[in-house]
């Protein structure tokens, strides 16, 4: 019973932040259409990217709740982290262009495969990436650049998204988790929105028995997850 209540609270808090978050793309579309009517030229590319990002957030939210409520759906398979990051970059490309953020893929090195739920991992990274893309200009970051990168740590293979902003910290993340459901802007030092993309990523990763945390990649700061290495997979 305690677990059921916990899950209900989780999905309600997450639903609230997703609902708040979705106001933004709807507002953007409404204003871009209005502006287009005044100018006689509608920015269809940005509208399409905005709508598509909003739909992805909804999909990822649904996946996160489903995996949290029904762990049996969690089918693990050998996954190449580099290919997940590549696909994530493809999914985020149009949204990044709308925000003037340049995406870079840094998957140098051979890290082999890990056992993971591919769809979940990609959904988590896409949600996280979309949230960071929206947040970067508001952080007044000197460089509007987001790097999708992987590297090896002593705990496993790290997959994450990195930027030139030292506000991407575990402290900010922990504070946000505590405020989630009680504040309209729980990740105040990271984003001006409800941070739904980050919480959706957090939920999906948690359902996959992984954790979202702050990480460094060379000189950049970021958020990501550590995927445990399965030595047997190295023979595949």
């Amino acid at each position: 019973m305690a677990t059921a209540n916990g899950s209900a609270n989780l999905s309600q808090e997450l639903l609230l932040s997703v609902a708040e978050e979705l106001k933004l793309p709807l507002l953007q579309i409404a204003r871009l259409v209005e502006l287009g009517r005044l100018d006689g030229e509608v920015d269809l590319r940005t509208i399409e990217a905005t709508a598509s990002a909003a739909l992805k957030l909804l999909d990822n939210y649904a996946l996160g709740v489903r995996l949290a409520l029904e762990p049996r759906e969690l089918n693990l398979e050998p996954v190449s982290v580099a290919s997940v990051l590549y696909d994530t970059g493809q999914q985020l490309d149009e949204l990044a262009k709308s925000y003037g953020v340049s995406l870079e893929l840094n998957v140098a090195g051979k890290f082999g495969t890990v056992m993971a739920h591919r769809q979940g991992l990609q959904a988590a990274l896409t949600s996280l990436g979309a949230a960071l893309i929206e947040a970067l200009p508001a952080l007044e970051s000197r460089q509007l650049k987001l790097q999708l990168a992987t590297h090896r740590s002593r705990y496993g293979i790290v997959a994450g998204l990195y930027a030139d902003s030292d506000r991407l910290t575990d402290t900010a993340l922990e504070r946000g988790r505590k405020l989630h459901g009680n504040s309209r802007q729980p990740l105040m030092s990271l984003t001006h929105t409800s941070g739904a993309g980050i919480f959706v990523a957090d939920t999906i990763l948690k359902a996959m028995h992984l954790k979202l945390h702050a990480s460094r990649h060379h000189r950049l700061y970021g958020l990501g997850t550590v995927l445990p290495v399965n030595n047997q997979l190295h023979f595949i």
Binding site: L24, L27, Q28, R31, L32, E34, L35, T46, T50, S98, Y99, G100, E134, P137, A138, H192
Partner: peptide, 8 residues
């Protein structure tokens, strides 16, 4: 804070 809205 939102780049897309700011531009509009």
């Amino acid at each position: 804070p939102d780049q897309v809205l700011a531009e509009a």
